[in-house]
């Protein structure tokens, strides 16, 4: 039995994982999501913004990581609109440009935010760090029109929006580069703007040193961060909360696999059962 398990074809594992992930999506478990300290800090930071504050939001994720980053971005956008803050959106990744537009349009429609007054999407600009530096001098030097080609000088939201100093807060949704490190270096380091960030679960550990050092005020990590923020923002039936149940069962399944693998390993060690895959030097 153990030998069969040790030689188990990977595809059985894949199938079992697929079942374990699909079931909670079809039959929701209704698990409570308790917001953690970091999500609360993120939420309270936005709650502390005065009405009418201008916030810059950067969508630096692509279609692959959309599932993790989009729910938190959407939840935070809706929160900002409800706080009557004004949001200027940009993106530094070409993949992110269409996703940012869609997220902004959906959130604005739901919260009845007026484009050009409450929000604007400036689009994608190539250059990464160079874009952030040039925006510190004058945003209009970098973006002369918005994503749709409209002149920015005619928009009320862009009045008195000159450079990073015009924003009360900067929020970055990133998965690597350009990402949190660039914002910390340029926007936080040179222009002393407060930064909030949201990343995938995989890249969140890289951002923790910035959080500990106070360079990033709060961080939302992965689907969990998105789910917690949806709960805080009062968004019912959000994608992140639904996904968290599937993530929970998947995690338990992987933990089970690890335990099983170790049982096999120790049994193998005792009984000296040869395994087909062989050992490689580590």
């Amino acid at each position: 039995m153990l030998q069969k398990l040790a030689e188990l074809d990977k595809r059985w594992i894949f199938l079992a994982l697929a079942v374990v992930v699909i079931l909670p999506l079809v039959f929701p478990l209704g698990l409570p999501v308790e917001p953690g300290q970091m999500s609360r800090k993120f939420y309270e930071r936005i709650e502390a913004l005065p009405e009418g504050s201008k916030v810059c939001m950067s969508f630096d994720y692509g279609p692959g990581t959309e599932i993790e980053c989009q729910p938190m971005a959407s939840a935070v956008l809706k929160h900002l609109f409800r706080r009557r803050c004004r949001v200027v959106c940009i993106t530094l990744l070409p993949d992110g440009s269409m996703l940012a537009r869609r997220t902004l349009e959906q959130a604005a429609a739901e919260c009845k935010a007026v484009y050009g007054e409450d929000c604007v999407y400036l689009g994608y600009k190539n250059g990464g760090e160079a874009v952030l530096r040039n925006m510190g001098e004058n945003i209009l030097n970098v973006f002369s029109t918005d994503f749709y080609g409209k002149d920015l000088s005619s928009m009320p939201i862009m009045k008195d929006t000159v450079n990073w100093d015009s924003f009360a807060l900067v929020i970055d949704w990133s998965v690597g580069r350009p990402g949190v490190a660039d914002y910390v270096r340029i926007v936080g380091g040179q222009y002393h703007r407060p930064i909030l960030a949201g990343t995938t679960a995989v890249t969140a550990p890289e951002a923790y040193p910035f959080v500990n050092a106070g360079q990033v005020e709060a961080l939302l990590g992965g689907l969990r961060g998105g789910g917690e923020y949806e709960v805080l923002a009062g968004i019912k039936g959000g994608r992140a909360c639904r996904g968290l149940e599937a993530q929970s069962t998947a995690h338990f399944f992987v933990a089970f696999l690890i335990i099983l693998a170790n049982v096999i390993y120790f049994a193998d060690k005792r009984k000296k059962i040869g395994r087909g895959s062989g050992e490689r030097r580590r």
Partner: peptide, 18 residues
């Protein structure tokens, strides 16, 4: 893209087992 990214979950499961 989302599908390809989600393949990672399966790879993690098999990598963990191995």
């Amino acid at each position: 893209c989302s599908t390809t990214y989600s393949l990672l979950a399966f790879y993690i499961a098999s990598a963990s087992f191995r």
